[in-house]
Design a protein around this nucleic acid. Sequence first.
DNA 1: GGAAGTACTTTCCAAAAGGAAACTACCTTA
DNA 2: TAAGGTAGTTTCCTTTTGGAAAGTACTTCC
Lengths: 120, 120
Amino acid sequence: MKKKAVINDTPVCQVRMQAISDTMSILSGKWKFHILGTLIEGDKLGFMDLLREIDGIGTKMLSKELQDLEMNHLVSRKVMDTKPITVEYAITEYGATLAPLINELAKWGIAYRESVHGGE
Amino acid sequence: MKKKAVINDTPVCQVRMQAISDTMSILSGKWKFHILGTLIEGDKLGFMDLLREIDGIGTKMLSKELQDLEMNHLVSRKVMDTKPITVEYAITEYGATLAPLINELAKWGIAYRESVHGGE
DNA sequence: GGAAGTACTTTCCAAAAGGAAACTACCTTA
DNA sequence: TAAGGTAGTTTCCTTTTGGAAAGTACTTCC
C-alpha cells in the first residue's frame, strides 16, 4: 500500500489554510502593516503625518493603501472642516483586533535580529 | 507652534517597524506561510507530498520557496537514500517559533470570515 | 499675487513575482 | 524498452507591484 500524506485534506486544515490566505490578501503589499502599526500607536493622524511617520512611503502608495484599509473597515477616514482641510485617519475597533498579530510579527522580528547577532 | 506627530521617532517604534519589515521580508511571497503551516502540521514531507498538500502551487515556486526557507533555517532538507531518491522536508526547531504567528494569522482570518457572514 | 501647506490623483515606467509547460536525470516495475 | 514515480531546473511569458514626478484643487499667510 502506498503511503500518502493527506493532512491537508482534513476540513480543519483546509479552513486554516484558507484563513491564512484571507488574512494575507487583506494585509498584502509592502506598507499595510506599517500603516496599521503606526495608527495603532498614535491615534488620529493626518495624511501628511503618516507620510512623515512611515519612512520611505510615497503619496501614491499611502493613498492607495489607506483606501484598501478603509474598504476593509480597518481604518477610518474623517474629513475635518479646518482652515486648510485636514483628514483624520484612525484605526477602527475592528482594525485594533490586528494588534496581537502585529505584536507577534514584531516580536518574531526582534528575536530574529537577536538570533542573527546572537554571539555578540 | 506647529503640532507634529512624531511617535515614530522614538527608538522603540523604529525598532518595532524594522522588526516588522524583517519578518515580512523573510516570509514574503504567496506561499511561505502555506508551506510552513503545512510542515508544522505534518512533519517530514516529501517534495511531491507538499506539491499535493498545497493547493495551487507549482514545482518552480515550491522549489524556490523551500530554498529560501532552508537558507533562513526555518526548514530542513534531508536527502534519503531510498530506491527512488526521496527528500524529507521538515520544520526546524527555529521554524517552529513561527507557530504563534501563524496561529494568529489563521485565527484572525477565521474571525474575519465570521464577521463577513456575521448575520447568517 | 506668490509661496506654502493641506490632500490627493494621474501618468509613466521599471522591477519583481509568479505561472505553464517543457526538460533533465535517475530508478523501478511491467 | 516503455511507463511512471522520485525531485527538481529552465525558459518564456504575463501580471502585479511599486516608485518618481508632475499635476489638481483649495486656503491661508505674508
